[in-house]
Design a protein around this nucleic acid. Structure first.
Length: 586
RNA sequence: CGGGGCGUAGCGCAGUCCGGUAGCGCACUUGACUGGGGGUCAAGAGGCCGUCGGUUCAAAUCCGACCGCCCCGACCA
């Protein structure tokens, strides 16, 4: 049955509520697609739900093609399960927790690695049962510190999460590649351009990951992209070239008085040297432990990289008091002599440091620096690692295939729509999920985890596909295929023609939204533009008399008339949606 | 959690500085006119001014506490 707008639950707004800033958020509210209940908690009205179900259908189709089976796991889970994996602390406050009537601690699952691994250990015993790929589309719960951006960061949301279990690395790679291809297909079919980037794997653990980013100025993630090659990474983990170090013989250490010069800029200016000839010190607390980090003066620290280097969850810069408590001097801290000061700090040097000779570093005394410090001769770090923050213009690290690239990094903003992880055995091991291999030995399955934010994808569809008038739904995810604007619905012959047209369209498999309201034509046309179905048909006495219907694709500038007889063919032409890709299923 | 902003009718806002019992536009209801890009006229309905407490003869307005929402940051599988 066609939906009649006179009875549609939900309505359009002429003005967007003040809390909406981005185009997609404003349109979601103005079109009456979503209604907010609390911070980061939304209802999806009938139009939005139809679109979300279409997105889900695409996802299911591609998941099935990638060899995954749909199931549904519990949202309520006992805390014990998460103690078993050791992830309770990693999620911390983000987890919604409660006690049941028997005083058992429960939680609302933010993700399902634990649950699926538990399922696996209860279900699979033999390598003959591998590989396994499963997925679900399910509400996730995360008590985000700051929900924001409409549907972009919410506290209850639909997620498609998939998990793979494989007997060995090559088999895992097949699963990973199948999922990656499925993701490319999903986003392409939904009408959202995506960029696949290397990502940090965060609290979920695991060895490596890729994010599927929708590049947009309103994105909350920063992406480093090479202007020349295909290199793309989240700034959190983006690598970059440090350039060629000058070739110099190490010179003798030389104190230099530097009164009041506590910044690299001031120091470099005073000494008339480039910032790259200085060493920048950074003092951090990583899971409460002191870390002394050193990087070339012209570069910035990437705190996440530092945390990963010292295997910490949380990291922050020390306060001046904390620095003093370590016996260091803020602004003049030096990596030299840290051992002698009996510090328990972990010293980490950026990869820019060992090759850079004769750097000016702090003297660990107010108003004193040291010239000609040399790594190896004057000091050593526990870790030499990439702890630099990729910035606009930095040299591209290398092309994905390993060949050198002369390009430079550009920074862009993006929204993470999907994330795929290599988990390895980080869940199968603590949860004791085993299978028996062909030799009768117990083995741990190699796992993968694959997520898509369903409403986030909806928001991205709208952000990507709209104009000043409203949404421009891609046919594949539009709530309805056709929006019929009726002029003169009170006239019996018009009402009859409408019913006839609706029936004909639906017989052809099209979904129809009919604006039968007693509104002025202008109101209806504006609402049709706002709601943004791919095709608008106008039925009016004028057109009926001429035995035509007026047809306007949402993307077209002007409407034109079509003989009634040729209508279905024309619609099929416009609504032809991208078919499931021809890529192999795995 | 730090910084900032905002809570007055379904939506957008004024009124708050300077206390006197609430208003505008859109939307909604009824009627008439109108009828192809958000119409006109007329008559209506709708508000515990976020909550609680205080000051005062009197509080949307002043004071205090709390709650909620938005933005920036921290955080973010």
């Amino acid at each position: 049955m066609a939906t009649r707008m006179s009875g549609l639950f939900g309505r359009t707004l002429r003005e967007a509520p003040a809390e909406a800033e981005t185009a997609n958020h404003q349109l979601l509210l103005r079109a009456g697609l979503v209604v907010q209940l609390a911070a980061g908690v939304y209802s999806y009205m009938p139009l939005a739900w139809r679109s979300l179900r279409k997105i889900e259908t695409i996802i299911r189709d591609e998941m099935d093609r990638a060899g995954a089976q749909e199931l549904l796991m519990p949202a309520i889970q006992p805390v014990e399960l998460w103690q078993e994996s050791g992830r309770l602390d990693a999620f911390g406050e983000t987890m919604f927790r409660f006690r049941d009537r028997r005083d058992r601690e429960q939680l609302l699952a933010p993700t399902h690695e634990e649950a699926v691994t538990d399922l696996f250990r209860n279900t699979v015993q033999s390598y003959r049962d591998l590989p396994q790929r499963v997925y679900q589309i399910q509400n996730k719960f995360r008590d985000e510190a700051r929900p924001r951006g409409g549907l972009i960061r919410v506290r209850q949301f639909l997620m498609k999460d998939a998990y793979s279990f494989d007997a060995d690395e090559p088999a895992f790679q097949d699963s990973y590649d199948a999922m990656a291809q499925a993701y490319v297909n999903v986003f392409q079919r939904a009408g959202v351009p995506i960029t696949r980037v290397q990502a940090d794997s965060g609290a979920i653990g695991g060895k490596s990951s890729h994010e599927f980013m929708f590049l947009t100025a309103i994105g909350e993630d920063t992406i480093a992209l090479c202007r020349n090659c295909d290199y793309a990474a989240n700034q959190e983990r983006a690598e970059f070239g440090r350039g060629l170090a000058p070739v110099e013989e190490p010179a003798a250490l030389e104190p230099v008085e530097t009164p009041g010069l506590t910044t690299i800029d001031a120091l470099a200016h005073f000494l008339e040297i480039p910032a790259s000839r200085t060493a920048k010190a950074g003092m951090f607390l990583a899971d409460g432990r002191p870390v002394f980090a050193v990087i070339r003066g012209d570069l910035d620290f990437n705190e996440l990289k530092i945390a990963n280097t010292v295997d910490a969850h949380e990291i922050r810069a020390m306060t001046n008091d904390e620095i003093s408590a370590q016996g260091w001097v803020a602004g003049y801290a030096s990596p030299i002599g840290l051992d002698a000061k009996l510090t328990d700090a972990t010293v980490v040097a950026d990869i820019s440091i060992p090759n850079a000779p004769n750097l000016v570093a702090g003297g660990n005394r107010t108003d004193l620096h040291l010239r000609h410090t040399n790594y190896g001769r004057d000091w050593q770090a526990a870790h030499v690692a990439d702890i630099g923050l990729a910035r606009d213009g930095d040299p591209c690290p290398t092309q994905p295939d390993g060949t050198p690239c002369p390009g430079a990094i550009a920074l862009d903003r993006g929204i993470e729509l999907g994330h795929i992880f290599r988990l390895g055995t980080v869940f199968s091991e603590p949860l004791s999920a085993h299978f028996t291999d062909a030799d009768g030995e117990q083995q741990l399955p190699i796992m993968g985890s694959y997520g898509i934010g369903v409403e986030r994808l909806l928001a991205a569809v709208i952000e990507q596909n709209h104009d000043d008038q409203g949404i421009i739904w891609p046919a594949a995810v539009a709530p309805y295929d056709v929006h019929i604007v009726v002029i003169g619905f009170d006239k019996p012959e018009i009402a009859a023609a409408v019913a006839q047209t609706e029936a004909a369209l639906e017989a052809a498999g099209l979904s129809v939204l009919t604006d039968d309201r007693d509104e002025r034509p202008g109101v209806k046309f504006n609402d049709a533009d706002l709601l943004g179905m791919p095709v608008r048909l106008t039925l009016s006495p004028r057109n009926l008399k001429a035995d035509v219907v007026e047809l306007k694709a949402r993307t077209a500038a002007e409407a034109d008339t079509v003989a009634t007889a040729g209508l279905l063919a024309r619609l099929a032409d416009i609504l032809h949606t991208p078919q499931p890709s021809d890529a192999p299923a795995s």
